[in-house]
Write a protein that binds this DNA or RNA. Structure first.
Lengths: 213, 213
DNA sequence: ACAAAATGAATGAACGTTCATTTTATACCG
DNA sequence: CGGTATAAAATGAACGTTCATTCATTTTGT
């Protein structure tokens, strides 16, 4: 029995492990959207992933871990978007485009998923941490974009970028929730109106009402 | 055994039935907030209501019915608030006060509850109907209040009241969700900033930038 | 005497997770 | 090349709970 020792063989098909994980996350996302986080059973997710329960648990230690996985993946995508936005010449324009991109062009399932996660975050410690992480990232990114706008003249000086980011974030969440609940809701008019108002108060100075120093 | 017949006695302590129902709804609300809709067990709700399971089912036929009951009750409360708002002289002021009232002064548990219901509405037919009913009512009420503002001069003419209502509603939902998830979040600065921007675009005409006809 | 009100143990289904087992793929040796 | 050893990959039945709902029975109020 005793064979030499540690011949070792850390075999594992090079990228196969990552592939399996995305395959599982895709299946989980589908199930969570369709049935909700609590009503989706692991067996359903296993079936959707074309895989046995025992094997799935080799890649994710629990149902909660699946949410974590999904969030991390989506967050990565958002990071790219913001990186582009910071390079734009009119940042309010690009913020509006991003809103439309996430709230309208994205498949509605994603919005349902995020809504689900937000609700879950109100009482699930682990999910709450993830949600805060995402929130902090978005607020920071939007504030950065606005600061960039101030630097390049597309946004008025002296505004509180953090507070404005909070505002836009709340609007985003509200529309997300609405569209998750009402598939027929078209968020584009609301987005256009919202950004028009934001431009009114953030846009480059309209030269008016200056207290002479 | 055969006693006369139908001596009948539709006894039931006059208001007792309604009392029991509110008692149950209060208990259910507490549990839903603390554990979430799916994780709250009927046995917990029964215990909180000080009542056996069998008896509870005499008043509500299912767990879903409890959600319906809670929604209907809260909707009644909101109706009163809007009725007052319509009588105000500065409607934007009163809308801001209502936002603070619902998003800050109200116990956070209510916000958690509504968030829970919204998420559930994304996939539960019955809850979705209720949610739409509430949404329609709020949009209509806010639009009415704005129309009243136009009538009494506190809101600029020519705006699209329905679209503005949609905007405010989305903002409301977003803040609700944020506060449900982050107990320490203080929504008042965001509300103040939001309403300042709304005033900028809806307030009585600031006499400026008029294209001479 | 009687029915409404209330009880709470029982029921049966469903769930997340585990584990003893089998399959698959590769590395090593002759 | 072929055979064997090895461990990773994968299986799926089983486990122990938990839960919404029911119902035979008792209590209460008139």
């Amino acid at each position: 029995m005793n064979v030499h020792f540690i011949p070792a063989m850390p075999r594992l098909a090079p990228q196969s492990r990552a592939d399996r994980r995305t395959q599982i996350l895709d299946a989980a996302k589908t199930c969570f959207v369709r049935f909700g986080f609590h009503n989706a059973s692991m067996q359903q997710i296993c079936a959707a992933a074309g895989m046995s329960a025992g094997n799935l648990y080799r890649y994710f230690p629990s149902k909660d871990a699946l949410i974590e996985g999904i969030c991390e993946r989506d967050l990565g995508g958002a990071a790219e978007g913001f990186a582009e936005a910071r390079r734009a010449s009119d940042v309010l324009d690009v913020l509006e485009k991003m809103l439309v991109g996430y709230l309208w062009r994205r498949p509605r399932e994603d919005l349902c998923m995020w809504t689900e996660i937000s609700a879950e975050a109100a009482r699930n410690e682990a999910v709450n941490r993830i949600n805060r992480h995402i929130y902090d990232f978005i607020i920071k990114s939007v504030a950065d974009v606005l600061a960039q706008g101030i630097a390049n003249g597309s946004v008025r000086k002296g505004i509180d970028t953090h507070r404005q980011a909070t505002l836009l974030q709340a609007f985003f969440d509200g529309v997300m929730l609405r569209r998750a609940v009402m598939p027929e809701f078209d968020p584009r008019p609301a987005i256009r109106t919202m950004m028009a108002q934001v431009r009114g108060s953030l846009g480059p100075v309209a030269k008016k009402k200056s207290k002479p120093k």
